[in-house]
Amino acid sequence: MRQIFAADESLSWVRADFEAMASSASLLIFRVQSLLGQVVPLRHRSVVRRPSSAASGVLACGVEAAEATALAVEGLTLAFGGAVAFEAIDLTVQAGEIHAVIGPNGAGKSSLINAISGLYAPQSGSVRIGAARFSRVPAHRLAALGVARTFQNLALFKGLSVFENVLSGLAGAQRAGLAAQMLGLPQARREARAQRERAADVIARLDLAGVADRPVGTLPFGVQKRVELARALVARPRLLLLDEPMAGMTATEKAEMSRFIREARESLGSAIVLIEHDIGVVMRLSDRVTVLDHGRRIAHGTPAQVQANPAVIAAYLGLADEPEAEAA
């Protein structure tokens, strides 16, 4: 039942989005596009889930609610010595939701992602991933928890080809042991074949087939960013953390990347946390937005709510009005 509520609620923010949007004629065109992108999957979801949750009763409801919240960050605080990276951050991301985290440079966005993925140890607060709650997320268990991420400054395996990099995204799911691999036992061969098929599938979907055998270090930056997304997607994560996946990209590349991210959400139903500087991209792509400034959450809500928030305009969006004016 919670599920239906969540879906209806998200429809209501879409409506709010629409109302807010109508006031701004210059934004109308891409807002309608984003609406189309949002309404269709949400309807689809509520249609699919309504009968199943009604049939499975109360017990299943609890399970589904737990499953629906992919990530819940509660009161998370991180400091390096005396320097506070962020303080008392709350962030909840539902399954199938694209949640953007925005804010000026140094607002603590990347630190937040790094804390969620266990690379930094927060001083207080907790991170709940699926049903498991941590005060410090164990990085080595991320893959098993169904979490994948990309890195702001690329963390690809330079000595491997594109295909091998994508395959390595399945390292956490590897079952066959070393002996089975070396002897080529049926179990290991079956697993290897299944992994190659999955990797090839993701590579094809992200338009990387042409460069699959190239050493990853020889590719342009934008393509490497896409390889990193492929390496994260191949594991079919329930929670996907994207740290500036479109940094340094051209407008065309950004549009392409946005499409890949949206498709990933549609096909995998992943919850996605997205750090992005391009406000246009954020407004078009995300369902909800959290705004950080100086390590504090200053606003959260739908893109339209956030955009209308005076604190946000003061801290951040005021500076970002220019590119939108240009777009109009």
């Binding site: 893959a143 390595s168 390292a171 066959a176």
Partner: peptide, 24 residues
């Protein structure tokens, strides 16, 4: 083998290797 790939992954990007589930 996948194990050989893990060796290179640890060499090239230990943190990313840990994140994708390589038992470092």
């Amino acid at each position: 083998s996948p194990t050989g790939r893990n060796l290179v992954a640890i060499r090239d990007q230990e943190i990313a290797a840990r994140i994708v589930g390589v038992k470092v």
